[in-house]
């Protein structure tokens, strides 16, 4: 089962004393996220923006009822931080950290699967419910409450398209970055399934990119009737060179697999309208409403 956040979710920030952790803790608090505690090993008894910091999650749990976690710790320590959150039964866990070895991600997801913990990411901007709460690093100003659900592998491209959706007056219900790594927890299908059942979401924007076959699988899911709400999509990397990693660890065309063309064709076959340019997505969604 996929677990997301609401206005009552009590959030823990792991890696709260680092530059990224501090910066985004402040922004999340300003947005209305209920952050109640932070953890950084060796930094217990400090405070960040009035939020108490503990050395371990176990200590934080003695004082606070914790629901969800967001992880900013550097890649070499992200495996332990994630397992600690999973053992503490926090759910969902958003892993923002970029550069986690694939082997560690495999371990994290296998352990998360045992307790049915929702892992968002790694290498994700996180998730946001506009006007309510965010468990992530996305710039709040580009979002507005509305009816479009967005699911994306990338960060800034997702903000770009969200800004245009806001500008045409539609706004968003819930937005989720699934992450740019080859192996991620939540995938397109999990999120699409959730959107299908979510009453606030009427139409969907799917933002994919080269590498792997997550978009093709999403297309198969849509084509088989798993999702009845209309979808507009954009796939980045039409002009990418095979064999070269385009910024994200997962954005690579290997042999003949993972091309933008294959993803676009699969989505179109499933009835998804795919834009040629990022700006097309908001225009297509407008026509769908």
């Amino acid at each position: 089962m996929v677990k997301f956040i609401n206005e009552d979710t009590q959030v823990l920030v792991q890696g709260i004393t680092g530059i990224q952790g501090r910066f985004h803790t402040k922004l999340m608090l300003e947005y209305g996220t209920k952050i109640v505690a932070g953890v950084t090993p060796g930094r217990g008894e400090q405070e960040v923006d009035g939020i108490p910091v503990y050395d371990t999650i176990a200590e934080a749990q003695e004082k606070h009822a914790l629901d969800a976690s967001i992880i900013f710790v550097p890649a070499p320590y992200a495996l332990d931080a994630s397992l600690e959150a999973i053992e503490a039964r926090l759910d969902p866990v958003a892993v923002i950290t970029e550069g986690i070895p694939v082997r560690d991600s495999i371990d994290i997801l296998a352990r998360a699967g045992l307790g049915d913990t929702t892992i968002v990411g790694p290498n994700t901007p996180g998730l946001i419910k506009p006007g309510m709460s965010k468990l992530g690093i996305m710039p709040a100003q580009v979002f507005r409450e509305g009816s479009v659900g967005i699911v994306s592998r990338s960060g800034t491209l997702f903000y770009e398209i969200a800004a245009q959706i806001t500008r045409v007056g539609l706004g968003q219900s819930t937005c989720i970055g699934i992450g740019g790594d080859p192996i991620v927890g939540l995938d397109f299908i999990d999120v699409l399934q959730w959107f299908e059942e979510n009453n606030e979401t009427e139409i969907i924007a799917l933002i994919g990119e080269i590498g792997g076959d997550a978009e093709e699988r999403a297309a198969e899911f849509i084509g088989q009737g798993g999702l009845t709400k209309p979808v507009a999509a954009y796939i980045a990397g039409r002009a990418a060179v095979p064999g070269k990693r385009m910024g994200h660890a997962g954005a690579i065309i290997q042999g003949s697999a993972g091309t933008a063309q294959s993803k676009i064709e699969a989505l179109e076959k499933a009835g998804v309208v795919v834009g040629e340019r990022p700006g097309d997505v908001a225009r297509i969604l407008m026509r769908m409403t």
Partner: peptide, 24 residues
């Protein structure tokens, strides 16, 4: 660009308009 997805999309858009990107 800033961010992998946005930079890829920028390259695609330049290419779509008939240009040839020198780099990502």
């Amino acid at each position: 660009g800033n961010g992998a997805g946005l930079t890829m999309a920028t390259i695609d858009t330049v290419t779509l308009h008939g240009g040839k990107p020198a780099n990502f």
